[in-house]
Every structure is written in structure tokens, then in C-alpha cells.
Amino acid sequence: MSTISKWVTRRTLKKDLDAILVMAGARGSCKSGSALSLAYEIDRDYQGNSRFFMKPPKGFELKKGEVMPRVVFTPTDFLNMISTVNLPKNSCIVFDEVGVAGDSREFMSKKNRMLKQVMETIRSKNLVLLLTAPTLASFDASFRRSMSMYIRCLGRATKELILNPGK
């Protein structure tokens, strides 16, 4: 278990807090990929099995052997996930492209205000939210105020993948 996931689980399970991690970086700097792998590592049950899955959304089909990661793109999906699905403590939700859903230029829209109120009151659920955006300024300032960790993604580090992208 990495230091980040240890820190997050201690925060959610022992300290009775939530963890809102912001993954920021340029386009193609593996924000979503690292958010997925971090969430896959953190979101485990007491036996150590991953539970970072969800029901596939309407109109979307999975192939054999695949599982749907708990990723949301829209505020409605996010709010539905929180309100309807009974998520246990330390469950991860990846809110991808939060700059589109909670744009900083629509700071007084109803959508942004609702999301802000949710972010402020979500602590008691002890969830782990991973937000991805190109910069800190691209999403609403109120989300930024409630974040607990900022991770700057710098891109791929392995040479093998860059040299042989087909691998």
C-alpha cells in the first residue's frame, strides 16, 4: 500500500474525515489513469478485495471480463451515486473532468451551488473523491476550498511505454 493510500484510509476510517483529492495536470499527463489506479488501490473491503465497481449506466455495455469503474462525469450522476447507492466508508468516486461539470466561469449557477453544498456536507459519509482537472482554476473555487490534497500530474514516467506505445 502506498503512502498516499495509507494517508487516505487513515483519514477516512480512523479520523472520521473525508478525502477530496484533486489531480491536476496538462492534457495527457495521466490524470484519469492515476486517479483510477489510486482509487482501485484505496477502495478495498476488509478482505483486501477491490470494490471500486458500479452498475454500468444506461446505454452502455460492458465486454466480457470488464468491470465498470466508479467514474462519474456529470453532477446528476454524482448526486445520484451519493444519494441512492449505499456506499460504505472509504469508497472512492472519481469525478472526471470536473472543469466541465463545475466550471469556474459558471460560479453562481444552480449546479455549482448545489455541488458546493454537497462537497461541504459530505464529510460524514467518509468517502474519497478524486477530482481531475487541467488546472486548479478550471473548476469552482468552492471545491478548491474543500479539497484535502492536491496532486500535480507530470505525465508518464516509464520509457518502455513511450518507446513502444502498442505494448
Binding site: 483510477l36 489506479s37 471500486f52 454500468p56 460492458l62 470488464e66 468491470v67 462525469f73
Partner: peptide, 21 residues
């Protein structure tokens, strides 16, 4: 710190879902 790539059974549906959205 370094993060390893996510497993394929998670990454492949994520990519398709992103295209869909």
C-alpha cells in the same frame, strides 16, 4: 511519487465510457 497504470479491465471500459459521454 509514482503510480502504476490501472488494470486493463478497468481502463478499457473507462475509455469507452468517456467517449460515450
Amino acid at each position: 511519487f509514482f503510480v502504476t497504470a490501472p488494470p486493463l479491465f478497468l481502463e478499457a471500459p473507462y475509455k469507452r465510457y468517456k467517449l460515450f459521454m
